[in-house]
Nucleic acid binder design. Sequence first.
DNA 1: CACCAATTATGTACTAAGTATATAAATCTG
DNA 2: CAGATTTATATACTTAGTACATAATTGGTG
Lengths: 233, 233
Amino acid sequence: MLPPDRRTRKRLATRQGISDAATRLFIERGFDNVTVDEIAEAADVGRMTVFNHFPRKEDMFFDRDEEGRETLRNALRYRDASVAPIEALRLLARRAASEDPLYIHFSSETQGFVETIEKSPALIARARGIRDELAQVVMVALAESVGQEVTDPDAQLAANLLLATWTVAFVRAHRTYRESRDPGKAKSVFLALIERGSSGLEAAMAGTPYAQATIQKTAAPNRVPKKREKNSR
Amino acid sequence: MLPPDRRTRKRLATRQGISDAATRLFIERGFDNVTVDEIAEAADVGRMTVFNHFPRKEDMFFDRDEEGRETLRNALRYRDASVAPIEALRLLARRAASEDPLYIHFSSETQGFVETIEKSPALIARARGIRDELAQVVMVALAESVGQEVTDPDAQLAANLLLATWTVAFVRAHRTYRESRDPGKAKSVFLALIERGSSGLEAAMAGTPYAQATIQKTAAPNRVPKKREKNSR
DNA sequence: CACCAATTATGTACTAAGTATATAAATCTG
DNA sequence: CAGATTTATATACTTAGTACATAATTGGTG
């Protein structure tokens, strides 16, 4: 998985250097008070090199969003067959809160990130964009997971309800941490909102395939037949 | 209600002239292919006058968002006491689809607006921002309507679930209209998604004051429908 | 009416993000 | 090593948005 290529290695090193310098400056002085020229200077590269790696200034701050996409896709793709798609997402959120990955870690360190976002209109806007991009990923993954059209309206609704829930949970948990400096309290706020939102999502998707496991958990008299028809539509 | 002041009248006229010229140009040529200088030229005002009335270019396109806020606030503030807050919002959506106000009208005219938005990253971003601002309004109005703190996490969750639902319903309905040119079909897609999302929201808020009417509708096990109910369905 | 204060329109100058394009430098491949 | 490709960089440009100053208009007051 490591890049064997020297060219690739150097490119990634340059990219990382820019991102590191930029992020440090952003947290120190605020996103809107740092110019691209200063970033280029701090990273010791030319200004055009910066835009070469990051089309927008905001991308230097949010440079790990692809991981989030992968996590979401995998949660749906490799879920246990006895778990309904939306249930898999609920479990993912619970796991995320327990295992403390980068995104949902409550500490003074991550607090800097969150505060930097909240202080900058541009970063807030980009965060909204990423939220919607994640919803898009969830929509596609949901539809795929039950063999629906990738633009199924129910999948889109489910994905957006989910991301709305997660966003609120994330924001409120971080606010709780900021006000109490108690990671446990923040975590419980996070989980409480996740549970509320998840039960709402489950109710919204009642009757759709997204709420049903591929293999029924409870011993049912007859199995639900596969829904793959050749010449439907 | 009409402004008796000549100064005010002139200011609003100037503003409207700019907004009209800008919107026309945006729809004709696309938001990103129109410069502020061109708008100023078309509206026959100085460039600084444009920024005087509209801090951002996007505001010339979305210049009616305050009405949406008012509608939301009023729906919660002046609802019947026998209707739970989130129920009032469901009714508002239904009414909006029936009464065809500006926002949810499916026609070739509104289609131009929607397409202009969808073709411009800047307008999409601003639409996201407005969505979140509306969610903020709903959150505050919800909390007020039950006498909670205006930052109640449940209210925030409810508001964001609601706006997620409405956004998806709006977007999907317009897509349906675009593909079928059938306003009735678009409307039914809209309503179906609203119902799905609303029942999800109701489930999520079960047990909170947002799902309960101020005055209980039923004291007895049987429902006692009001006789002079105007809003039948 | 004449004068003053406040508001609105506008001009000039500037900052900074992002784009277009060309070129140089590093790296890979045969 | 030579040629092709990718990456870094320089220069020049466009455009949104801001800061600040000034002019024009309007409302109010003696």
